[in-house]
């Protein structure tokens, strides 16, 4: 219980520190670190997710269209509401947790254990400025871009497979998709993916900087905790978003328009 409270307090403190220090991103070494994080989280992940993202769309379409005996409208709705809005951001977040979350938490823990964070402090370099801020900002931006990329590929995969299952052409399906697509779908994904990125980066940074002890054995413990809690936070944020969009807002005062 105490540990949980400590983690919540630490998370809030870290969030406030990051928010207050956002303008420091312009400082050259912090900006370089930010660019490096965007590269490792976004660019290097891009090629690896192509097949996975396409397969995601293909599998969802293949299973659901057969189960629901779908027509063009339902197929497009499945692609938009399920693949684009929900599974795309979740799949991107899973990639970020598995690739970046593990790397960030292990790197931070190693820096803490080997005394590199202490060395930075003695050099007058703030850890939030140099380590946390560029990672959080970089992971947020990269997650948003990666989410859009995964959504595009997953929907494309689904659209490519659909003509083999229902009687509709690729162009017919794509045209219907663009008719149904609203800016809300885009904003919804962007906001959600930014929050996913923030939650993953903040959680992994916090665990990395606060290992249970200062031995090598702490590193796997830190990574495990960071990954588990990041996944939990992502699912929690997704549940809140799903409730807000598909449920009733503000205790029934506002009815969400889907």
């Amino acid at each position: 219980m105490l540990q949980a409270l400590r983690e919540i307090e630490g998370g809030i403190q870290l969030s406030l520190n990051v928010a207050v220090r956002a303008p420091r991103l312009a400082v050259p070494p912090i900006f370089e670190s930010f660019l490096r994080q965007v590269y490792f989280t976004g660019v290097t992940a891009a090629t690896g997710v192509v097949l996975r993202a396409c397969l995601l769309g293909v599998i969802i379409i293949a299973v659901l269209m057969d189960m629901l005996d779908a027509d063009v409208d339902l197929a497009v709705k499945i692609l938009l509401l399920l693949v684009f809005r929900e599974l795309g951001p979740l799949a991107a977040a899973a990639v970020v947790i598995l690739r970046t979350g593990t790397a960030v938490s292990a790197e931070m823990a190693m820096m803490r254990i080997s005394g590199q964070t202490r060395a930075l402090r003695y050099l007058g370099i703030d850890l939030y400025d140099y380590l946390v801020l560029p990672r959080v900002a970089g992971v947020m931006l990269a997650t948003a871009v990666l989410t859009f990329y995964v959504q595009f590929l997953a929907v494309l995969g689904g659209l490519a497979l659909s003509p083999f299952i229902i009687e509709a052409t690729f162009t017919e399906l794509a045209g219907r998709l663009f008719e149904l697509f609203t800016p809300v779908d885009f904003y919804y994904s962007v906001i959600k993916s930014l929050l996913f990125g923030y939650a993953v980066a903040a959680c992994c940074c916090w665990h990395g900087l606060n290992p249970p002890d200062l031995t090598q054995n702490a590193v796997p413990k830190v990574v495990t905790r960071a990954v588990m809690q990041s996944a939990m936070l992502v699912l929690l944020i997704n549940a809140v978003f799903a409730y807000v969009v598909f449920g009733i807002l503000f205790f029934g005062l506002v009815k969400a328009n889907v």
């Binding site: 080997s114 005394g115 590199q116 202490r118 060395a119």
Partner: peptide, 14 residues
């Protein structure tokens, strides 16, 4: 700011 050190305590960033 007036103090500098060559020490294992102030190592390099890996």
């Amino acid at each position: 700011a007036k103090v500098g050190a060559v020490s294992p305590i102030v190592g390099l960033v890996a």
